[in-house]
């Protein structure tokens, strides 16, 4: 049992953190994770775009699988599942925030006058749904991947 434990311990330390988990790689991964999650949240929220995700089963699948995938890749970065969970959820919340900000952009830039309807949509489709997806699927992906870090 002791030998088995030692093997596991060595395998955990030998995982190729050096290859994909240097600071530039992690920054790049985080940036792409934010882009990917912001994009799917935004495409679900913006019903006016012809390439929207809203209103189709495939759209919902993409909406939940993209954050899972982002969490999965972010989770490979950390040896500790706790750190993976915390970091990926923070990145998820940053994505929710950027989705809200981008959704309000035409109002902020005053390209046209919006009433209360935009705010209502931003809170429901820009915050509420992305928030639920983030707290459900990002940690799921992060925990799956960080728990596989013990294997070579």
């Amino acid at each position: 049992m002791g030998d088995l434990w030692n093997t596991q311990d060595i395998q955990t330390r030998e995982f190729d953190y050096g290859r994909y988990n240097t600071v530039p790689w992690v920054l790049l991964k985080s940036f792409f994770a934010i882009c990917m999650m912001t994009l799917v949240y935004l495409l679900y929220a913006l019903h006016e775009l012809p390439w929207r995700l809203f209103g189709s089963v495939i759209g919902i699948l993409i909406l939940v699988l993209a954050p899972f995938f982002a969490g999965l890749i972010l989770g490979f970065t950390f040896e500790s599942p706790k750190a993976a969970l915390a970091y990926s959820i923070i990145i998820g919340f940053v994505s929710v925030g950027s989705c809200m900000a981008l959704m309000m952009l035409p109002g902020i830039l005053h390209v046209t006058e919006f009433g209360f309807g935009l705010n209502k949509n931003v809170w429901f489709y820009g915050f509420f749904i992305p928030f639920l997806v983030t707290i459900s699927f990002v940690p799921a992906g992060a925990l799956v991947s960080s728990s596989t870090n013990v294997y070579e």
Partner: peptide, 29 residues
Amino acid sequence: VLHWLFLAVGAISAVVLAFSVITYVEYAR
């Protein structure tokens, strides 16, 4: 493989995100 797939999808996402936001603002304009 997953890392490289993620980098490819992430790069495409960044481009589509920029295009979508510009289109959305232009729609409102």
